[in-house]
Design a protein around this nucleic acid. Structure first.
Lengths: 243, 243, 243, 243
DNA sequence: CATGAATGAGGTTTCATTCAT
DNA sequence: CATGAATGAAACCTCATTCAT
């Protein structure tokens, strides 16, 4: 391993160290109350050092989203490539597991991602980081859509474009997580999340099956609802689309 | 009308004036970037005056949640009392319409409500305001649950407690709104929200029907998943539960 | 006097209070080492208050130039209107006195004005302030040029455009002040300034007279050296010209 | 050449490399906005290395003055030794050329030198550097004075001590350069400097001649105006005198 | 001798909140 | 009750300087 590589690796290790500290501090205090000094202390570094690795507070915060999106992508690829997922039920179950793992990997994920909504925040991000987030988001939704597409194609029918189903799946997941997190934060109650999620996905799965049985081929009208003709191009990003 | 009442009414009018201004400013700038002076200017008042009506910035912000919860409650009561909603499909459709109206009443609602998650924020709220939010939240979920309960009781069966269904419905709604808002904010895309919502609720409704048809009576096990024995007490609040 | 006027006057008084404190602090510590907190303390105000009256540190600093330019303008107008200034010697003497008074009014003047050279500084200024500085600078040089113009016109000749003479006069003054200030600051020597200035203006005056005697009318070629055809328009600002 | 010498030479080369980079960066960004890292990058060195050659930022900055003063001295010596400069006109013309060359050698010169005014800056300089600056400054003014002195002595008269004339010459030059730099920086105008300088020195020269013609022998009174009894000692340094 | 990552003090600026009028 | 000027704590961020490698 050359010196250059070692340096690069060391640098990456330090970035991770900061992000781990940041995640902890943001989780406890929220974006506003968490100060850069808090994070520096948690990472056992000086405040100035943070700025060697992240342009500003917003960029540090947003970088946490990259981590989680990368993990989500990996998990979704596994689901897609796993040949043991044959039926629609198996696939939805696998999706649910993937999402659940992602949630366990970083429960603050969605809170993080919805913070990106603020256009003030976006202005502070470097073009590179923003591009990465967009790309990863688009990729994630694309993978989910492909999983559902196969199934629906198999049935020779589709009432809704797969990407819409993917969108809804993601929404259900987001909503439940947010909702339950919200309850947990205030009450310190816990543990209902998984069961509620189970039920929701079961209901969703039954809805999908029902759609299958209808075998009604309607005009697709995808453009009406904003998705491209072909799933493989113009897949809307989860949260972020290109202009 | 006595002087005292007139004063009281005048005071309430002024509160509303401030909240309307606050909603506008928070919607545009987000919680952090919106300053009390911005809000004062929008309300054509001085900063000091805001503090005669709201203890602090957090409390002003949170008061907006009260407004939206009150509106949600009113709409849900109408749905419950409307005798023309007979079938499960009609009821779910009516619920969806109610949620849609609530969304149109104040699209920032959910963003607002999830801001309450921060325990730092909660510490700043007056006990009265916190109690009101809890009470209204609990009431809303209660109403939704009762609507579904009737239907399920009618079918002599229930796989899941109604309150879980209510929870899920709310989550789906929250998730889709957040998700689509998120896309809209970045891309200025718009208009897909309603269609996606339509599809999601249709899928959800089919799932519910399917559950009916199963006619499988399981042990209820409500306590296992955290809801009270009786729907009328211990209904979990949307977002807030009592300890 | 209405309330509005009183407020306005009070506000102006406070601005002056801050500027006086700023001048003192900048003189002692220089631009870099002077902190906003130093100035606030000197003005017996809090740091935040300074920002109610000046957008930022650069703008506060630059505002000091406005004061001195206003004073210079007033003094130059008096010189121009004073009918007892008949000969070229009297006029140059009067100019020298005016400059001397301006120097006594604020010895930091030129240091202040040359700080404006930094384009980084200019970017921080409000358009209004920048426009004021430009306008006052242009006006000052215009007045000086008119004084010399009259004299040269009387002699029916001019080797150099009056505005160039004005430019040079101003430069001599600037140079000597800076030079002597520079010596004084390091050595605590003092008092030579006036005498050196006397001699310089005397030499300059003799040069002017000599020019008169030449009675050589050359092509003016003003545009070659960057001044407008007519003294009354396009007079170059002392330090700042419009594009 | 021994190893020791080679090292010494290498060290000097590195110093020059840094100073050239520093000049470039300071010219573009000004003292405040120029960071040590900027300079290090321009010199293709690391920040730490700069501190092996210069005690601190102020000392690096001030070292640039040494360079320019050395060059000024060399040019002035040439003027003094050039036997083709016979008349006062020729001498003043030669001085002007020298100053012009110095200006072209480093247009930031004067800005640099006036930065030394800040007593805070001086405290940061090493005694050696400070002594060098003082010595070179004194020498420069001394050379100018001797040039004028010869001429005036030749005329058997002098209304003003030569050193005062030298002071004024330098001031005129400084003032014009600063003034024109100031205009240029803001307006991107350029090229008027030389012509204005021409005119100014012409006026100055005529003034000097006029002084000659007066042939009035006054008591010298040098001490009154702060210069030493003998021109050759105690010549005030340009900008810096010894206590 | 050279490096450059890390430091951390301190600067500018913001803004929720107060209080004399 | 309303005002809005003033406050001042604290946030983010910079950058001259150091020191282990």
């Amino acid at each position: 391993m050359g010196i250059r590589e070692r340096k690069q690796r060391e640098r990456e290790r330090r970035r991770q160290q900061i992000m781990i500290a940041a995640k902890r501090v943001f989780s406890v205090k929220g974006y506003n109350k968490a100060t850069m000094e808090d994070i520096a202390k948690e990472a056992e570094l000086s405040p100035g050092t943070l700025y060697l690795y992240f342009k500003n507070k917003d960029e540090l915060f947003s970088s946490l989203s990259i981590r989680i999106l990368q993990y989500l992508n990996i998990r979704l690829e596994h689901v897609l490539n796993d040949k043991s997922n044959q039926t629609i039920e198996q696939k939805i179950e696998a999706l649910k597991d993937a999402m659940w793992d992602v949630y366990k990997f970083d429960p603050m994920m969605l809170i993080n991602m919805f913070h990106l909504q603020s256009s003030e925040t976006i202005k502070n991000l470097s073009p590179q980081l923003l591009a990465d987030i967009k790309s990863l988001s688009r990729s994630s939704l694309n993978l989910m859509a492909r999983l559902l597409e196969e199934e629906i194609d198999k049935g020779d029918l589709a009432e809704v474009p797969p990407v819409v189903l993917a969108d809804i799946l993601w929404s259900i997941f987001s909503g439940i997580v947010l909702w339950e997190e919200s309850k947990r934060m205030i009450n310190e109650d816990k543990g209902y999340l998984e069961k509620t999620l189970d039920t929701a996905f079961e209901i969703f799965g039954r809805g999908i099956q029902k759609l299958h049985q209808l075998k009604t081929v309607k005009e697709r009208g995808e453009n009406d609802i904003g998705y491209g003709e072909n799933v493989n191009d113009a897949i809307p990003a989860p949260g972020i689309q290109e202009k």
